[in-house]
């Protein structure tokens, strides 16, 4: 899916979806720590999430503090809209 170019809204929705997949499988793995299939599922989505967060930051600004590297001398973390303002970044 990451090979198809996405606009900001599509990429944001994609991040929400794969992040939720991670949140949900984490809970399952906490009580099933030896389930290999579940671990593969987690690895797959957490790697996609890492890449998607990086792509998002490069184009539209950071969603996490670990991807908040200042771009062109500007700290976007606190200067872009916060999520409760309806902003997606």
């Amino acid at each position: 899916m990451m090979n198809i170019p996405m606009n900001q809204q599509q990429l944001f929705t994609w991040i929400n979806e794969i992040s939720f997949a991670c949140n949900d499988i984490i809970l399952y793995l906490d009580t099933h720590p030896d389930d290999e299939e579940a671990m593969n599922y987690f690895n797959h989505y957490s790697e996609m999430r890492r890449k998607a967060l990086k792509t998002y930051e490069e184009h539209y600004g950071p969603l996490t503090i670990d991807t908040a590297a200042p771009v062109s001398g500007k700290w976007y973390w606190s200067t872009q809209k916060w999520p409760w303002e309806g902003g997606m970044c």
């Binding site: 973390w77 606190s78 200067t79 872009q80 809209k81 916060w82 409760w84």
Partner: peptide, 16 residues
């Protein structure tokens, strides 16, 4: 407090 704070930078300070 952060939701209604009137400056984005201060919303950031409150969040962090």
């Amino acid at each position: 407090q952060r939701y209604t704070m009137s400056d984005k930078r201060v919303q950031g300070v409150l969040t962090d």
